[in-house]
């Protein structure tokens, strides 16, 4: 999944790795868009030419999977965000934060 690498922070820290170089990122974007286009086109072709066999009428739609991917991703992004907003409590909600740390009991565990 050579996907999106756009993280504004990278410029700020000035610590640019291999994937943060602007040229590299452009290449990745182009590759992503191109492969999307190719598979969408292949899908349409397959469906029109009839050598693809949908299970249901729904996926008989030529770019059904592309749409499904995009829509679910959108819903998931929004849903996840909402869920996070609604159900996330401070870290000390159940336990004290100290509980999460592993004390150095100077002994090593059994």
């Amino acid at each position: 999944m050579s996907d999106n690498h756009h993280t504004p922070a990278s410029e700020e820290t000035g610590d640019t790795g291999f994937f943060e170089k602007p040229g590299m990122r452009k290449i990745l974007w182009v590759a992503l868009l191109a492969s999307c286009a190719i598979f969408a086109a292949l899908g349409i072709y397959g469906m029109v030419a009839g050598w693809m066999h949908p299970y249901f009428t729904l996926d008989g739609l030529p770019v059904f999977y592309a749409l499904a991917g995009a829509i679910v991703a959108a819903v998931l992004g929004a849903g996840g965000r909402l869920l996070s907003e609604a159900l996330t409590k401070p870290s000390d909600y159940y336990d004290s934060p100290a509980d999460e740390t592993r004390p150095d009991d100077g002994e090593g565990r059994p």
Partner: peptide, 11 residues
């Protein structure tokens, strides 16, 4: 359970 700091035994 990790020991509280007060309880330390020699290893």
């Amino acid at each position: 359970d990790p020991m509280s700091s007060g309880l330390k035994f020699d290893k």
